[in-house]
Design a protein around this nucleic acid. Structure first.
Lengths: 350, 350
DNA sequence: TTGTACGCGTTATCAT
DNA sequence: ATGATAACGCGTACAA
């Protein structure tokens, strides 16, 4: 490579590799070329000339140098630290990821991704090590999570998907899990069932705990007893099957599952006992992923726009980056009860 | 912020922000601190002292500056440009992604991800714009793909997952689709069936075309007629249902589907006609994702270690980066015929 | 409108 | 073993 005083270099093919190369090629200063690239004030004729050379050489600015000089990389981190078995078993995280990726790509932002294949401490360290990141989106589902804590106490702009009580001053996108769970439970109660069980999600996650709380609230309000009618699951199909068996032993007439996947497991368990849905046992899930409508019978559930949550999280982060002085963004997305045949499809009981 | 001649800065909290800060704090030169961080030759006592300050301040080197100076970022790109509907509908891409992410994380490498939410031209441009990437892994499934072409003709170290005839000189990880398809088809033939149909994957993809070729090869070798017994699908459940209906009209006795998802659709179509699997129609898929073993009856299929392909792709890329002079890495992973009840489970026919 | 010159925070080379 | 000092390639005040 040849090198001049102002660090211009040419590759073997004669292509321009640095701003100085183009400056020399165009007979202008490096600053002018930089202005053409970044949309600064440049005479129209000059711009035209430089653009031509730019096209011809296929020049690409060095991203690292650009980041170092400007302090921005155009790249955000996305952290979804989830048990691998849970990660893509249903479409929850896929949809979340797609929503985020869609919006970021649409805005021209890049995305670094961390999935749950290391310890939380390692991931936090790695993410913070990527100091060029403009910001981070992190799934905040666990009640105690060093990654979330670490990011929030760092100076990296951060948006949570989900939130804990302690995260009230952070930026986040979430739904009102408690309210939604109350709604489904109340729906099941309105069918005339009294022994209504609940299959929880993974204990220790915000989603699971809030949905339990919502379920209990609805039961209490209706004067119904929820004791012994809560069986722990972990958002998984298999756990739904197992937990449902427990509840069926206690002769429940309805089951509200913390998500659609566990509801599909519960459905299987009910069938296995020779019971009918919804005649003998009414069933409801949570999420309204594709799966729900395809079950037989189609599943009553709570629709939460998971993909939309991803989009909103990305949007919130980019807004935060654009205007760092702005106060935290907090987005609470609406949910909707979707009534299908798993709760009201059969012949009414009473 | 305070600033000395050698660009040392302190944040409001007194934390060290640059190497020069630590140098000043330790009473050594910036070079020495750098050596401590990167494992250069340093006196044991000095190292201990610097390490202590390093811990205390929680110092993190600026990644952009490091990349600019060293020419390496420790970040690789992963491009999976796929139709959103196909992306996470079955677990193929999830598993691939997880394999890649696992290995990269294990080796301490970062990962930038591009999914298929922009045009190929836009994605290629964006990826090449991230000039700090040490290398790229790209899914090469389409027969014509500007992303793959662009990356291969760039000077970015690239590993393909899948490959076309034209990519023989590139680095790639793949399986022998033609051979595997031949194997399944031959298995169905060995059951005594003669009218064996094939539901293709998305035409224009390497996987789909190679599997058609393998199917045809097996049929020809057995002296069987494949004319009119090939129905186009697109790797999707729905397409499997539709294509199977077509084939059933032509009274096939067996169907080989290009993947498990379309096989599950075909299964549904067969059932809808009141036919039995495998007594009336034997069925086989491709991939052996979780889905396959869970179908009723469990699906005969070809096991390809999708997750393993991801791991191997990541491994190949990292090897390439470690030793750039090395010749291209080409990995052809084995496949395995997994015989389940969808082909041999019922009462034999003849 | 354009050019000059400095700064971004490292790594790496070369003396010492 | 350690310390100057020169890259690395770009952004951007400031001056012209």
């Amino acid at each position: 490579v040849a090198r001049t005083a102002s660090n211009a270099t040419w590759g073997a093919d004669g292509q321009a590799r640095t701003l100085d190369d183009l400056a020399a090629l165009c007979g202008v200063s490096r600053a002018t070329v930089s202005r053409v690239i970044n949309g600064g004030p440049v005479a129209e004729t000059t711009r035209r000339d430089v653009m031509a050379v730019l096209e011809r050489t296929g020049f690409r600015p060095n991203a690292a140098a650009r980041t170092l000089a400007s302090g921005r990389s155009g790249v955000v981190g996305v952290v979804m630290h989830v048990d691998p078995h849970l990660l893509f078993q249903d479409q929850y995280f896929s949809q979340l990821l797609q929503g985020i990726a869609d919006h970021l790509a649409g805005e021209g932002a890049g995305m670094m991704l961390w999935l749950g294949n290391r310890t939380k401490a390692e991931i936090l360290d790695h993410v913070l090590g990527m100091s060029f990141l403009d910001g981070v989106i992190v799934s905040a589902h666990a009640l105690v999570d060093p990654i979330v804590d670490g990011l929030l106490s760092s100076n990296v702009p951060t948006v949570l998907v989900g939130h804990r009580r302690a995260d009230l001053s952070a930026s986040y996108v979430d739904i009102d899990n408690e309210q939604a769970a109350d709604l489904v439970t109340t729906h099941l109660i309105s069918l005339g069932r009294t022994r209504i069980g609940h299959i929880t999600g993974s204990r220790g996650t915000v989603h699971a705990e809030d949905r339990v709380t919502g379920y209990q609230r609805a039961m209490r309000r209706a004067g119904l007893d929820a004791d012994g009618l809560v069986a722990d699951g972990d958002f998984n199909v298999q756990s739904g099957f197992t937990a449902a068996a427990t509840l069926l032993d206690r002769s429940v007439e309805a089951i509200f599952c913390a998500n659609d996947a566990s509801a599909s497991g519960a459905l299987e368990a009910i069938r296995t006992r020779g019971l009918r849905v919804p005649e003998d046992v009414a069933l409801a899930g949570f999420d309204d992923l594709e799966l729900a409508a395809r079950l037989d019978p189609p599943l009553t559930t709570v629709r939460q726009g998971v993909r939309q949550q991803g989009i909103e999280a990305a949007r919130a982060l980019l807004q935060l980056l654009q205007d760092p002085e702005r106060s935290p963004r907090r987005v609470l997305l609406p949910t909707e009860l979707v009534v299908r045949q798993s709760s009201v499809g059969g012949v009414p009981r009473g």
